[in-house]
Every structure is written in C-alpha cells, then in structure tokens.
Lab assay of single mutants.
Amino acid sequence: IRKQWHEDITQDLRNHLVHKLVQAIFPTPDPAALKDRRMENLVAYARKVEGDMYESANNRAEYYHLLAEKIYKIQKELEEKRRT
C-alpha cells in the first residue's frame, strides 16, 4: 500500500537507513566489507527490517522512530551478549 508520506522518502534515504541498521549490527569502518558475501545476508535482513517499518509506519516521524527503536534494541542486545 502506497502511503502519501512515501512520496517524500527517496531511495537514497532508504538505502542510507538500511546502511545505518547494518552498522548497528556489524560496525565496520571498511566499506569494502559490505561487498563481502557474508554481509549479503546481513544487508538483506536490514532491508527487510527497513521495508517492514516503511510499510507499517503511518508517517515519516513514525518511520524514523521505529528504525531508531530497532537500532537501539539491536545495540542493547549486542552489548548484553558482549558482557556474558
């Protein structure tokens, strides 16, 4: 379902936000690492998460909020795993 606010969101912005999700899960300073085949699954997962939020959000603010919440949860989980 195409929503009115979707018209304001460019593909570049969506790609940028997918990249932010990927960085939250696997922070790497090396952009070449993103071309690694093992990263493809991670990028696919991040695209799916972003797509789900894009579809479920009712406006741009909610879209950003859902993504920020997801990134926060991912970082929290990773922190907890590092501690144990």
Rank of each mutant, 00 (worst) to 15 (best):
I1Q: 07
I1C: 11
I1P: 14
I1N: 14
R2N: 13
R2D: 14
K3F: 03
K3C: 02
K3R: 05
Q4Y: 14
Q4P: 13
Q4L: 09
W5G: 08
W5V: 05
W5Y: 06
W5I: 03
H6S: 03
H6F: 08
H6T: 05
H6V: 01
D8A: 06
D8C: 04
D8Q: 09
T10I: 00
T10N: 05
Q11N: 11
Q11G: 07
Q11V: 05
D12F: 06
D12H: 02
D12Y: 04
D12K: 02
L13N: 08
L13Y: 06
L13I: 14
N15R: 04
N15I: 02
H16I: 07
H16Y: 08
H16K: 14
H16L: 10
H16P: 00
L17N: 15
L17D: 00
V18D: 13
H19F: 08
H19E: 13
H19V: 03
K20A: 03
K20M: 09
K20Y: 04
L21P: 04
Q23Y: 07
Q23G: 05
Q23P: 00
Q23V: 02
A24N: 03
A24G: 02
I25V: 08
F26P: 00
F26K: 15
P27Y: 05
P27W: 05
T28I: 09
P29V: 14
D30I: 15
P31E: 13
A32L: 12
A32N: 14
A32R: 09
A33H: 10
A33E: 10
A33Q: 15
A33K: 13
L34Q: 13
K35A: 11
K35S: 13
D36M: 05
D36F: 10
R37E: 12
R38G: 13
R38H: 07
M39K: 07
M39E: 08
M39I: 13
E40S: 09
N41K: 12
N41V: 03
L42Q: 08
V43N: 01
A44Y: 00
A44D: 10
A44L: 08
Y45A: 03
Y45G: 03
A46S: 01
R47C: 01
R47N: 03
K48D: 05
K48T: 07
V49G: 01
V49N: 00
V49W: 03
E50I: 04
G51P: 02
D52G: 00
D52L: 06
M53L: 09
M53D: 00
M53F: 13
M53W: 00
M53K: 00
Y54N: 03
Y54L: 02
Y54P: 00
E55W: 02
E55A: 07
S56R: 14
S56W: 04
S56H: 12
A57Y: 14
N58T: 09
N58D: 08
N58L: 03
N59S: 14
N59E: 03
R60L: 10
R60F: 12
A61D: 14
A61H: 11
E62S: 01
E62M: 02
E62V: 04
Y63L: 00
Y63K: 02
Y64K: 12
Y64M: 15
Y64Q: 15
Y64V: 13
Y64D: 15
H65R: 12
H65S: 12
H65A: 11
H65V: 01
H65M: 07
L66M: 14
L66V: 02
L66F: 10
L67K: 04
L67E: 00
L67M: 15
L67V: 13
A68S: 14
A68P: 04
A68L: 06
A68K: 15
A68C: 09
E69T: 07
E69R: 08
E69N: 08
E69M: 07
K70C: 05
K70W: 05
I71K: 08
I71G: 11
I71S: 08
Y72D: 14
Y72C: 12
Y72F: 12
Y72N: 14
I74V: 07
I74E: 06
Q75C: 03
K76W: 06
K76C: 13
E77A: 10
E77K: 11
L78D: 12
E79C: 04
E79H: 06
E79Q: 06
E80I: 15
E80N: 11
K81W: 05
K81A: 10
K81C: 03
K81F: 04
R82L: 07
R82N: 07
R83V: 15
R83P: 13
R83T: 12
R83I: 13
R83D: 15
T84G: 13
T84V: 11
T84D: 14
